[in-house]
Write a protein that binds this DNA or RNA. Structure first.
Length: 704
RNA sequence: GGGCGGUUAGCUCAGUUGGUUAGAGCGCUACGUUGACAUCGUAGAGGUCACAAGUUCGAAUCUUGUACCGCCCACCA
């Protein structure tokens, strides 16, 4: 029997002590000895509500953590939350709105206090819920991205990048959310495939004739400052340099030649709106066309637009402009048009590409080592194909817009000198009260940083960086990151970049991307669709172990988990039934042990001798050995569903259905071989419990 | 528009380098309940592995094409 078991299941090992410790504490094992193993918990929003995606995510991570711990590794699983700038601010603004106020009525400081109060009330909830489903994180190291320590890291990083010339400020076209009233990064503007319309319009040329253009956003016509055609397009060769009168806006603009225009598309002539489109912005810059911003922050028409459009919503203006073109007889046609439109990832509002003054991080230098880490095999993805998505993103990396027009977050540590003639701009680790250059009055930037600007540092900022702490020395770099694929770019890719830049090493060597939890129609579970399942309901009804087993066994590596929100009982029946079976088998086995069972191996004088074992005994021992090998191999390969299935099969079909039934006669009274059967039952059940413990910790702990 | 994944039993899904009768859970059928468990047991039905062609002694597995479904990326107005 001993030879059948890998060394980590030696009852005298650390694992056995851990069991005892667990029983006392019901908590994580302190990282004390052994090879460190580090898992980063993806930080949920402080205000997040637990959903089944968390359930799946936690079950996977906790299974890995417990497995590694039982192998004797000093396992650190770091929990924490992020402050979720936009989402949290939105929630508190809603509360404030119920009092008939806006954040501007309260003022910045009072509003920030309100958010802190709110976070103080709700912030721990998500972590408590995660705890309730059994996650054995190291709660003593729980972090929050706005904690002083992590904020210090944010400043350190900002200043370092600033001094290195990797942070810059400038006027560019960014994604603007007119509802959240802030700039967004490219990743935060989700492209949604939309069936829209494209209008084909004619602009009159000065001196006679018209030129056809196409647009999906007629409201931007008010900001047109040119028409562009391809330099080699014979249709328009004679028109380059001529002036065109933009209808409705009533503005004279030139026809310019630019390589960016695709002569094959539409009419081959494109209206140029430098203030509201990235391509147009580039064209405008090359030809000195004016960037005319025609919208206010809330995307109502404003600025140099005719009076009748002032204050109109952009979509109302769109209709009205089309109507005016029709009245002028300048509409050539309108077609259905399928294209991708950006939406705010927090409120789903259509984002407005808009010229704006923002802070950016130059990403190309940071991406280089992060891409190399993947290319040379140091960074692995599970499933593997996800690595190509990562590589593709890294190769096409674009600069990161990091400023947000919010109040909730890390305020940008930049001070502008207000002394006349100085104009110094300083980034500082400490708050400045005066200009670092001339000593004049200094004013801090009003904006805050993107939440991910703190999240991308978490693998080391949560361990005390920039100080060289013992934690940092021992636990960086970590091992594995388990998360949903949605935040591959938001968070995972950027953590790798930050790790390379500030720690000189990648923060983890394995990125495990699990699937998405969906309903039976394969729709993502979401609050708005009402198709979610609350993990706490499942825990309450069937237990955390049933939840964990069901989701672990139900999802192969990288595949989605389909659950039926209309049949929760049915969805979680596998786990519930298995927990029940295990419990009853345990009751029977423990009840049959009349005394301390004889050991199957070792030097004990009463050890079961090989020749005492019957055919059934030898068979179940062999099957047990097989299950250990199968499950251990599966755990190591992250094939948790295979591990779950292997243990399930051994426990249910082989041990319970077959062996227990087989030895029942021997167990009654004082039958010959009864003590051997008891010894085999105890030993094999013990092994099965340990094997299963990472997946079903509560019931196995209790039985053991 | 570019890249990628999926299509296997009524349902949800496994199937690890091509190799005997393709598996699991749930559901279904028949029978079974005095002692671990009906959240159970025993037995069983159910699949031309999306479709077409190809490679091979042999294909769910490899190649090509087709059709649906889905994901990621993208400044064709």
């Amino acid at each position: 029997m001993t030879s059948a078991l890998p060394p980590q299941f030696d009852p005298r090992s650390l694992e056995a002590k851990l069991y005892a410790w667990w029983a006392d504490q019901g908590q994580f094992a302190p990282a004390a000895e052994g090879d460190p193993y580090v898992i980063m918990l993806p930080p949920p929003n402080v205000t997040a509500q637990l959903h089944m995606g968390h359930g799946l995510n936690q079950a996977i991570q906790d299974t890995l953590a417990r497995f590694e711990r039982m192998r004797g590794r000093a396992t650190l699983w770091l929990p924490g939350t992020d402050h979720a700038g936009i989402a949290t601010q939105n929630m508190v603004e809603k509360l404030v709105a119920k009092e008939g106020k806006t954040r501007f009525d309260l003022g910045r400081e009072a509003f920030e206090r309100r958010v802190w109060d709110y976070v103080g009330e709700t912030g721990a909830t998500i972590l408590e819920q995660i705890r309730a489903i059994g996650s054995s994180c190291d709660w003593s190291r729980t972090y929050f991205t706005l904690d002083p320590d992590l904020s210090r890291a944010v400043r350190e990083v900002f200043v370092r990048l600033f001094e290195k010339g990797l942070i810059y400020r400038g006027k560019y076209i960014i994604n603007w959310c007119p509802r959240c009233l802030t700039a967004l990064s490219n990743e935060e503007a989700e492209k949604v495939e939309t069936d829209g319309r494209i209008w084909k319009l004619r602009y009159p040329i000065e001196g006679g004739g018209t030129i056809p253009v196409a647009t999906t956003r007629p409201e931007t016509i008010l900001g047109d400052s040119g028409i562009a055609v391809h330099p080699d397009d014979p249709r328009y060769a004679g028109l380059i340099g001529r002036m065109v009168r933009v209808p409705v806006a009533d503005r004279l603009v030139p026809i310019v030649a630019d390589e960016a225009v695709d002569p094959e598309f539409g009419s081959g002539a494109v209206k140029v709106t430098p203030a509201h489109d990235p391509t147009d912005f580039e064209i405008g810059r090359r030809h000195q066309l004016e960037a005319i911003d025609v919208m206010a922050d809330d995307a109502t028409m404003a600025g140099p637009v005719p009076a009748r459009f002032q204050g109109l919503d952009r979509f109302v203006a769109r209709k009205q402009i089309v109507a005016e073109f029709e009245a002028l007889g300048l509409v050539e046609g309108v077609d259905n048009h399928h294209h991708a439109v950006g939406h705010c990832y927090r409120c789903d509002t259509v984002v407005e590409p808009r010229l704006s003054d923002q802070w950016f991080v130059r990403m190309a230098p940071l991406a280089k080592p992060a891409l190399a880490a993947y290319r040379d095999g140091r960074l692995k993805f599970i499933p593997e194909r996800r690595g190509e998505e990562y590589a593709q993103w890294m190769e096409g990396i674009r600069d990161w817009c990091i400023s947000r027009q919010l109040w909730w977050g890390h305020r940008i540590p930049v001070w502008y000198c207000e002394a006349p003639g100085c104009g110094a701009i300083s980034a500082s680790r400490t708050d400045l009260t005066a200009c670092a250059t001339c000593g004049g009055p200094a004013r801090q930037d009003d904006d805050v940083l993107d939440t991910w600007f703190s999240s991308w540092l978490v693998p080391f900022s949560s361990l005390g960086w920039p100080d060289q702490t013992p934690d940092l020395a021992r636990y960086y770099p970590g091992d594995v990151l388990v998360t949903a694929p949605e935040i591959l770019f938001f968070w995972v890719a950027r953590m790798v970049m930050a790790g390379c830049e500030f720690m000189g090493d990648i923060p983890f060597h394995t990125v495990y991307l699990h699937g998405t939890v969906r309903d039976t129609q394969h729709r993502k579970m979401s609050k708005s669709l009402g198709n979610g399942i609350d993990p706490l309901d499942v825990v309450g009804a069937y237990g955390a172990d049933a939840l964990r087993y069901t989701v672990i066994a139900g999802t192969a590596v990288g595949t989605d988990l389909i659950l039926d929100h209309e049949d929760i009982e049915g969805s979680f029946a596998p786990g519930r039934n298995f927990a029940n079976k295990l419990w009853n088998a345990g009751r029977f086995i423990l009840g049959s042990l009349t005394e301390v069972p004889r050991p199957l191996a070792g030097t004990h004088p009463n050890v079961v001798r090989r020749e005492e074992l019957g055919l059934a005994d030898r068979w179940i021992i062999a099957r047990c050995d097989h299950a250990v090998r199968e499950a251990t191999a599966a755990y190591q390969k992250f094939r948790l569903n295979d591990a779950a299935t292997a243990i399930y099969h051994f426990l249910w079909s082989e041990l319970a259905d077959w062996y227990i039934e087989q030895v029942k006669p021997r167990l009654s009274g004082d039958q010959p071989g009864g003590d051997v059967a008891r010894a085999v039952l105890a030993a094999t059940f013990d092994v099965a419990l340990r094997l299963l413990h990472p997946i079903m910790p509560f019931i196995t702990e209790t039985l053991w």
